[in-house]
Simulated assay, not measured.
Amino acid sequence: MATLRAATDRLLDNAARLGDDAVRAPSALPGWTRGHVLSHLARNADALVNVLSGRPMYASAEARDADIEAGAPRPLAEQLDDVRATADRLAGTAADIPADGWSARCELRNGVTDVMARIPFRRLVEVELHHVDLDAGYTLDRLPEEFVTREIDFLTARFAGDERVTPLSLSAPDGSTWTTGAPPSGGDPVRVTGAPYALMGWLAGRTTGTGVRTENGAALPTLPPL
């Protein structure tokens, strides 16, 4: 939670340098303005309060989308107040969970379940990646190394065994390696190399493979959307 608070403060400090016109301008996410990104972050914090409190994450997919749309056009000051207040509310809810409560299972969207103890990291992913999505100078190579490594671990675990994903062997210059994708069926996995932040950006769908390459120079496999 302390790491999450620091990441949220970085995002708020950076977003505060934007103006109302910049908030209404496109973000790095297709079809979303920066206001959509900030609105989503606030509503996501509310949704995770619901999860930690044993309630459905969202009333419905339609309600989720409508709430983001409704909040997107607001002035910058209102957006920042909302992100800050909802982050505080999430932190307060987390602080009230007893130590033995974090091992309980909870339900997120689309039938996905997890243990409560993973919720702070899931929120950290939202904050860090959407900070990049604001397209306001916070780029993938500025993400904390520990976060990048944990997110690669998370994403490779998510894609492990997925028949839609070509068997992959990932490696970074520091010697770190990961495997993911469908089980190899008679052939070697596709070997992909790149700096950790570049590998993470590709796995997370933030790039089409900038700074990442296959060992044999072939085109990178296509990954399914998250």
Rank of each mutant, 00 (worst) to 15 (best):
7 A>E: 08
10 R>M: 10
13 D>Q: 11
14 N>D: 15
15 A>Y: 03
18 L>C: 00
26 P>G: 00
27 S>M: 01
30 P>S: 03
31 G>V: 10
33 T>L: 08
33 T>K: 01
35 G>T: 07
38 L>F: 12
41 L>Q: 06
43 R>C: 09
43 R>H: 14
44 N>E: 14
46 D>F: 09
47 A>I: 08
47 A>G: 03
48 L>R: 08
51 V>G: 06
52 L>D: 04
53 S>I: 11
55 R>K: 14
59 A>R: 15
61 A>T: 15
61 A>F: 13
62 E>A: 14
63 A>C: 06
64 R>W: 14
65 D>F: 12
72 A>Q: 06
72 A>I: 12
74 R>S: 09
75 P>G: 03
76 L>A: 02
83 V>F: 08
89 R>S: 05
90 L>T: 01
91 A>Q: 08
91 A>P: 02
92 G>R: 10
92 G>Y: 07
96 D>G: 11
96 D>L: 15
99 A>S: 11
103 S>M: 05
105 R>E: 12
107 E>Y: 01
107 E>A: 11
107 E>Q: 07
108 L>D: 02
110 N>C: 11
110 N>A: 15
115 V>F: 09
116 M>C: 07
117 A>D: 12
123 R>H: 04
124 L>T: 12
127 V>K: 10
127 V>H: 09
128 E>F: 05
129 L>C: 10
132 V>F: 07
135 D>R: 14
138 Y>Q: 12
138 Y>S: 12
139 T>K: 14
139 T>R: 15
144 P>C: 01
147 F>C: 05
150 R>A: 07
152 I>W: 00
153 D>I: 04
154 F>N: 13
155 L>I: 05
155 L>F: 13
155 L>P: 06
156 T>M: 00
158 R>D: 10
159 F>Q: 05
160 A>D: 11
163 E>T: 10
167 P>E: 03
168 L>T: 04
169 S>T: 12
170 L>D: 02
172 A>T: 14
175 G>A: 04
177 T>L: 06
180 T>L: 02
183 P>L: 09
183 P>M: 08
190 V>Y: 00
191 R>L: 07
194 G>F: 10
197 Y>E: 05
198 A>C: 03
199 L>I: 10
200 M>R: 13
201 G>S: 00
202 W>I: 01
203 L>D: 01
203 L>T: 00
204 A>M: 02
206 R>Q: 01
212 V>N: 08
212 V>Y: 13
217 G>I: 05
221 P>M: 03
221 P>L: 00
223 L>I: 05
224 P>N: 03
225 P>V: 03
